[in-house]
């Protein structure tokens, strides 16, 4: 494997690991843009009535 390949491989793996780590920390992204952990484990979209 040449240098360029190694670099690119490293970048891809690092990004993937970063994504996984972030999911563990902040919780998976909600379909409404918030993050699960900040919403008590579930998504906070539409948790209360239309205001």
């Amino acid at each position: 494997m040449n240098a360029a390949s190694a670099v690119v491989l490293g970048i891809v793996l690092a990004l993937a690991a970063l994504a996984v780590w972030r999911n563990m920390k902040k919780g998976a992204p909600c379909e409404c843009g918030g993050y699960r952990k900040s919403c008590g484990g579930g998504c906070c979209c539409h948790c209360n009535d239309e205001g």
């Binding site: 909600c30 379909e31 409404c32 699960r36 579930g42 998504c43 906070c44 979209c45 539409h46 948790c47």
Partner: peptide, 9 residues
């Protein structure tokens, strides 16, 4: 939209 808030609702 998403099943997660649906179940919670």
């Amino acid at each position: 939209g998403c099943g997660v808030p649906a179940v919670m609702a």
